[in-house]
Design a protein around this nucleic acid. Structure first.
Lengths: 333, 333
DNA sequence: CTGAAAGCGCTAACAT
DNA sequence: ATGTTAGCGCTTTCAG
């Protein structure tokens, strides 16, 4: 069995409470005593038991991080940064994957609740009502979705979409397409609105294509629509869709960016590695992870239910190789 | 404050110990009483506090999962499967990223130790000695590395390398290259040995190129060596290297698989999305996650230090588009 | 089958 | 500045 506070007390000839203070309020203990305690602790390899501490303090120093799908390339950077940022603040994080299943998500939140000081919900699939209800038991921060009365971290895709459409316009494209995502998606709605506004201002012809599944398959399948719509530039719901779309266009004998320009959203690793390297709206996922942890810790620190905070993070356009001026000669069909 | 066992006891008119039994040893309590307790618990939204339970039982029902880099596409599938498998067994998992830093790794293990029943070490950077020492405090399972006296999950890259070289041979390649990984890597050693043996048996000319960093950059930089060696087929240390290599060859005017065939290792998502789609040695990362959890839980269950188990998982060759017969006409240089 | 009591490792008033 | 005491939520003997 590992050393406990009692062993250290015995070894250093003081009472347990002094040992406790040495670790949780060092300034309250005489320097000399403190050193003696520290030495004994070091010697015995003593480490405070955080779970036991949590029992009295009510602070576990643990956070929960719930994502829809760990293997989706969008999430790992967020998980990484959240975890790193939390650790710097002496917090450990449970990460859990819901497999996109709201029931699993709810169950997870419930079992995790007692063990954490707060939980980060990334792109939750649960209904707003359910989230609000569960939020009564433990502080939440929601990433990538708008939930009334809940602290939120959003990434401004709308702005990114505007940049993307403007980029296409500046390249000379006049007929552009938006390969939309799932109909329920907050992101997809934002994109649609922003793209429409920018297209209108720039006098562009915009075709909304979709809804589509947010996957490579979705993009692949959308290639037909893109061809049919006769657009020369497209903004895809995300990078996976963009990659699938490029593949689909390729199969139809169309080259990117020679015949059609394609822009994705997210800036995931596969997009950087793809050929052509994908022009994309970069989502600040790492910053989102850090910000979410900050917000959460802030809520945890607050005596009573803190006022929910809303942070919107900027997106940017990363121009790589999948965009170019449109072909000067109209292609048939 | 959330409901405690005491609230439930009061509400159902029994003693706390009966409530406790209802949850941890249901068969020891009268059906009628049990139902009453369960009803009250349900009613109050009671959930046992696992941390408090851990204090008396010594079982936290938590696992630690430590990886070098969450954002490295190799790990997410492993994290996902480990976490899912653990959850099915009623275990939560802390995941932590060491950023490839042995010191962080050690610190992490130490702070996590008290809070978990066991930890999964994936491709640890710590010295064997350090791992053995830390392993005295908590059960470990090591993935992707051989540590004496420690339960281990390995993936048989050697076998995969043999399949890869044989595939190249069957396509008609006679001069092949191995773009090796970092010199210290266990995997790289295995690959080298296996490739050499297979090449010898098949009467192939094998050039070992490297060592190289295990990254896209490493592959990009190795393109020159590949050209210089005049090989027509190459097995790369991993998919990232392979992707970088293809890029590098492309820059030199060489086509894959037209001029050179390239095989990667790992089967990460970007490889599947790349063009040409990467032929690769698929690593059973999901199975590794599950197996590691099984081994760990087994060790946790064992009364005293269990005999370390070694599980080796099979790899397989996934033939996609980056391999083809060699060009019939020798290219210049 | 159920209640009583002790204790897991630690912190937090309250004394001294 | 340090010791005393009680107790966090739960399990686990031990009685009855």
């Amino acid at each position: 069995m590992a050393a406990t506070i009692r062993d250290v007390a015995r070894a250093s000839g003081v009472h347990v409470s002094t040992v406790s203070r040495t670790f949780s309020a060092p300034h309250l203990v005489n320097t000399e005593t403190r050193n003696r305690v520290l030495a004994a602790a070091e010697d015995l390899g003593y480490r405070p038991n955080r779970a036991a501490r949590a029992l009295t303090t009510g602070r576990t120093h643990n956070l929960g991080l719930i994502v829809a799908d760990i293997a989706n390339p969008f999430f790992p950077p967020l998980i990484k940064s959240a975890q790193a940022h939390a650790r710097e603040r002496d917090y450990h994080v449970f990460v859990a994957d819901t497999d996109e299943d709201p029931l699993v998500e709810e169950e997870l939140i419930q079992t995790l609740t007692k063990q954490v000081d707060g939980v980060l919900l990334c792109s939750p699939r649960l209904s707003n009502r359910a989230i609000e209800r569960l939020g009564a038991d433990v502080p939440f921060v929601v990433v990538n979705r708008r939930v009334k009365g809940m602290s939120t971290v959003l990434m401004d895709v709308g702005h990114g979409a505007r940049l993307a459409v403007a980029h296409l316009a500046s390249l000379g494209h006049r007929r552009i397409g938006l390969v939309a995502g799932p109909s329920g998606s907050w992101t997809s709605g934002e994109m649609r609105e922003a793209a429409a506004a920018t297209a209108r201002e720039a006098g562009l012809d915009l075709s909304i294509l979709g809804p589509n599944p947010p996957t490579e398959q979705g993009g692949l399948a959308a290639a037909g629509d893109v061809v049919k719509a006769g657009v020369t530039g497209v903004l895809a719901y995300n990078d996976m869709v963009a990659i699938g779309l490029i593949e689909g266009l390729y199969e139809r004998g169309l080259r990117v960016p020679g015949d059609v320009s394609v822009i994705g959203v997210d800036d995931i690793v596969p997009g950087r590695l793809n050929r052509p390297k994908l022009t994309t709206v970069a989502m600040p996922t790492s910053a989102a992870g850090r910000t979410a942890v900050d917000l959460l810790l802030q809520a945890v620190g607050a005596k009573d239910a803190a006022t929910p905070a809303l942070t919107t993070l900027e997106t940017s356009l990363v121009v790589r190789e999948s965009t170019a001026p449109p072909p000067s000669i109209e292609r048939s069909s």
